[in-house]
Every structure is written in C-alpha cells, then in structure tokens.
C-alpha cells in the first residue's frame, strides 16, 4: 500500500512537470491554434543555459531567474522572426516550421553543449521525507510548479496585460478594435510559454539527467495531458498533466512496465482523440470526416 501511495505521489511530482509543459502548449494553442512541437527542445536548451550559469558559479536561484528571463526573450524572438512571416500560411507550413525549429534547436543543443548525459543539481535537500514517501526534490519541484502555475493563473486573471493577451487569443479581430496590439500579445505568449518550459526543464533535469533529447518523452506526456484536459483550456491542461503523471507512474509500475511508458502516452493521446476529442474540460472542437 505504501508502495502504491509512493507511486501516486511520485506521479504527481512528474505530473507537475507535464502540467507546466502542457500549459505552455495550450497557451500557444489558444493564441494561434497551433501546437508548438519544439516546446520540449526549447526547454532543454534553456536547461543547458541554467547548467552553464550554475557551473560558472552563479547561485542556483539566480541562475534560475536569469534562465527564465533569457528563455522568455528567446521565445519572443522566435515568434517575431519565425512565426510572424507565416502567420497566414497553411497548417502544413506551420507544422513544417515547427519541425524545422525542433531540428535546429535540438541539434544546436547537442552542438553547443555536446551529447554526453550530464547530472543536474537540485536546489532542494534531496533525501527521503515522510518515511520515504516523497523525496526532497519531488516535494520542492512540485511546490515550484504549483507556485508557477498559480502565478500564471493570477497573471491572466487579474492583470491588464493578462486580459489583453486572453482577448487577443480568443478574438484577435475584436481585440484590435479595442486597441490591443495583437501581434505583440502573441510574441509575449511565446515568451511566457518558453519561460514556463524552462522552469519545467530545470525542475525535471535532476531526475532524468540532462541530455539533448531530455524533453522528447516529456513533450509527449504533455501533449497527452493537454489533450486529456482539453487543448483549449489552460486549467484543464494542468489537471490533465497531473493526471497523466499519475497514470504514467502507476501504469509503468503495475501494467506495462517502464519499457513501454512512451507508448502509454501514445495510447492516451489516441484514446482521448477518439473518445472525447475536446478533452475532459475543453469546448467541443470540430472534427471533420
């Protein structure tokens, strides 16, 4: 029983990571109706930046904040330079640009930081807590994730800028008519998504170790989480991310074994799309046959 409880708690801890990435995906989806396939690679790149700063002797949390800021700027830049010119192009073009971004970022990561697997420090006291039920890092990273998700919620719910961003995402034409600079809102959305991804990367790296493909699997779970919760519903995506974390851990331990964990994500994705394409909390999306 204790083992089961531990698996659930560990699932919630990794679920927080998935929830963050899922939220980043949903934010871009809401604004542009596209899923950023490169979200994971961008986060990995950010995590390497953090490691470089830490290795250069920066205090952990300072490196953390700097990385988040740098990632935000990179996200804004990517939107301005790469996505803006194809804003009105076909879905195929968008998917193509995202794939191009995946290729460039992931290989650039390997090129700049090399491919060896690197350990990543945790800022938390890393020992078993509560009689081995949860590790210090799990507890700490879950707390960080929850704080970040909370801040994002407050930002969108209660600030002018957050309101303008939501307006631009829901109804760009009307947003322009009240004077919202929609183009910049999209760029800010990209920046925020990149920053959230960076935090997720930094929090997960001590667990899975840092290598250029670190986030590939995580991106898949985040997809699954976002779809499960509803790809157009940020709150749903967060819940979906946590749920997928728990499902993955329990499924990996008791049903399919760790080797097929990724396949589990695929099964969730297909299952959700077939049974309830809108997700648990999403509005019904169109499905043309």
């Amino acid at each position: 029983m204790n083992g089961f409880l531990h698996q659930v708690i560990a699932g919630i801890a990794t679920g927080g990571i998935y929830a963050s990435v899922a939220l980043a995906l949903v934010m871009i989806y809401q604004a542009t109706h596209h899923v950023n396939f490169a979200q994971g690679e961008m986060a990995t790149f950010s995590t390497y930046i953090a490691l470089t700063l830490v290795n250069a002797g920066w205090p952990f949390w300072l490196a953390f904040l700097a990385t988040v800021a740098i990632s935000f700027c990179l996200g804004v830049m990517i939107e301005r330079v790469l996505m803006r010119p194809v804003a009105n192009a076909s879905v195929l073009t968008h998917v193509g640009v995202f794939i191009g971004l995946v290729l460039v970022v992931s290989n650039l990561t390997g090129w700049v930081f090399d491919y060896t697997v690197k350990p990543f420090p945790t800022p938390f006291h890393d020992g078993p807590l509560l009689g081995g039920l949860i590790s210090g890092h799990e507890l700490g990273s879950t707390a960080v994730t929850l704080v970040v998700l909370g801040l994002v919620f407050l930002f969108f719910r209660y600030t002018r800028l957050g309101l303008a961003m939501r307006a631009a995402a829901y109804n760009p034409a009307s947003a322009r008519l009240v004077g919202v600079r929609v183009g910049w809102m999209l760029a800010l959305g990209w920046g925020l998504a990149a920053a959230i991804g960076a935090i997720a990367g930094i929090m997960v790296a001590p667990v899975v170790f840092l290598e250029p493909n670190m986030m590939l699997g995580i991106l898949l779970y985040a997809f699954a989480g976002a779809l499960l919760g509803g790809i157009d519903n940020p709150g749903g995506a967060v819940i979906g991310g946590f749920a997928v974390g728990v499902i993955e851990n329990l499924g990996g331990t008791y049903i399919v074994g760790t080797e097929l964990k990724l396949t589990l994500a695929l099964v969730i994705i297909i299952g959700v799309l077939l049974v309830r394409p809108a997700g648990l909390f999403g509005r019904v999306v169109l499905s043309r046959v």
Partner: peptide, 17 residues
C-alpha cells in the same frame, strides 16, 4: 465582436484597455 469566453466585466475593461 463580443469576447464570448470573457465576462461582461472583462469585455468592458477591454474597452478601456
């Protein structure tokens, strides 16, 4: 041009954004 997903309050706030 209503922002359907937002509240009346938020719609009005957007007018003055």
């Amino acid at each position: 041009g209503t922002f359907m997903e937002l509240t009346v309050e938020e719609n009005m706030k957007l007018g003055a954004i």
